[in-house]
């Protein structure tokens, strides 16, 4: 297998790190800015994916749809105060061609409720297509959940 330029590996991991810190710090308004102008974001289950079924739990086909979701979470939807703590690891670059990089990473997300109740809320893989450049961006981000079973509700993006 071809050697991956360590600078590319670093750029990808740095993008992922900045992305999860924005979500965990409740900077949801920054979330769409991690995507290119044609970027897509989808959360689905490994079960749907394996069966070739297209349904997503969250599907944003553009940064505008991501901004709409943030607006809804801030102004319309009602849910108890909660936050996430992401742990992302094992980032494997599966393809690197010019400025386009495909990467898969594992994640664990703990959900911490306002009263302190903490739950291992989601585990799975990020399957990312990233555009490198001065500021690397997600061109496509698929969040593939290991389980199809979601506890109570999923407000904040993963």
């Amino acid at each position: 297998m071809a050697t991956i330029d360590p600078r590319v590996q670093w750029q990808v991991e740095n993008l992922l790190a900045r992305y999860v810190h924005a979500l965990d710090d409740d900077r949801l308004e920054d979330w769409p800015g991690f995507f290119s102008s044609t970027g897509r974001y989808r959360i689905t289950t490994a079960e749907n994916h394996a069966a070739g079924l297209p349904l997503c739990i969250v599907q944003a086909d553009s940064p505008a749809m991501m901004r709409d979701r943030v607006a809804a979470l801030r102004h319309a939807n009602i849910y108890e105060a909660q936050g996430y703590r992401h742990v992302v690891s094992s980032t494997l670059i599966t393809r690197a061609e010019g400025a386009i990089v495909d990467a898969v990473s594992n994640f664990h997300v703990a959900r911490v409720m306002h009263d302190g109740a903490t739950l291992l809320f989601a585990t799975g893989r990020y399957i990312d297509r990233i555009l490198l450049g001065d500021a690397p961006l997600f061109e496509d981000k698929r969040v593939l959940l290991d389980s199809r079973r979601i506890d109570t509700l999923m407000a904040i993006p993963l």
């Binding site: 009602i78 979601i150 109570t152």
Partner: peptide, 18 residues
């Protein structure tokens, strides 16, 4: 696309779970 309205992350259904 309209499935964004339903399910645990649905714009008009997430509150029911809570």
């Amino acid at each position: 696309a309209q499935a964004n309205l339903i399910g645990p992350a649905g714009f008009i259904s997430m509150e029911d779970g809570a």
